[in-house]
Design a binder for these strands. Sequence first.
DNA 1: ATTAATCCCTGGAGGC
DNA 2: TGCCTCCAGGGATTAA
Length: 284
Amino acid sequence: MPELPEVESVRQGLSQLVVGKKIKSVEVLWDRIIHPAGSVPAFKKALQGQKIEGISRRGKFLIFHFSDYDMLSHLRMEGKYRLLSSQEALNKHDHVIFHLEDQEDLRYNDVRKFGRMELLEKGTWQEAASIQKLGPEPTRESFQLPAFRDQLKRRVKNIKGILLDQGLVAGIGNIYADEILFQAKLFPGIPGQELTEDQVKALYQAILDVMDQAVKKGGTTIRTYENAFGENGSFQDQLQVYGREGQACYRCGERIEKIQLAQRGTHFCPHCQASGGNQEWLLG
DNA sequence: ATTAATCCCTGGAGGC
DNA sequence: TGCCTCCAGGGATTAA
């Protein structure tokens, strides 16, 4: 499931593969991927003859920069882009085909059809509603401790849910939320406003560290993720809690537990992450 | 303003 | 083998 590190890896690979290439035509095989609803004909028409000038990223969104348009693209759970020969047979889950020059296709494949694309007038992508909602990137330059502390103080929601909220800090998904909370030694069910100053600092630092590490490792390959070159990430080799329920904690040996929080599977070590008051949130 | 629940989708896993 | 149910989950939307 692509989160910020995986999307960044895809962006880097795709940039090498398709920047400078020109779109001849576009096929859309599943209309709902294109937003807003009903815009498929305009989408196909606008992209004819457009050159791919660059690809950037904001949170988990890819932004394709064309000659006269920008395109927001969100991979959601399992979206992938591949560059293939036009001769190659279509895959069952190829939903959007960008026919390029020189007999090449850029194909968007998405088993669950959750991904979304939206074409915008060039230079206006920052104003799109989905982008406006995003908090800062999880880097020391953009993501500031005082603002983060203030936001946490106003939230009664559990910190697992807060990390998944793209409005506080952008790019964290379910895997990294669990890994961040393990590194910060925080129980995922603690309400934001109940964190002590030391805990807020630990959480802030863990966000920066885990996201930075994951980007350096090219992301995490769980299930089906691969980058634009078809390569796996390697951060899965250092996951401490995600997907490890029932197994021994690498730090203390206790069994990793899995519970539901914020409608998401949440993995944690009941011994290392006991801070925040004896796990009273676990009961009831 | 914040929070919780629902929906979109398919394939894989587990039960029988 | 095959049929059924359940689970995975990001973000838009709706409701409270």
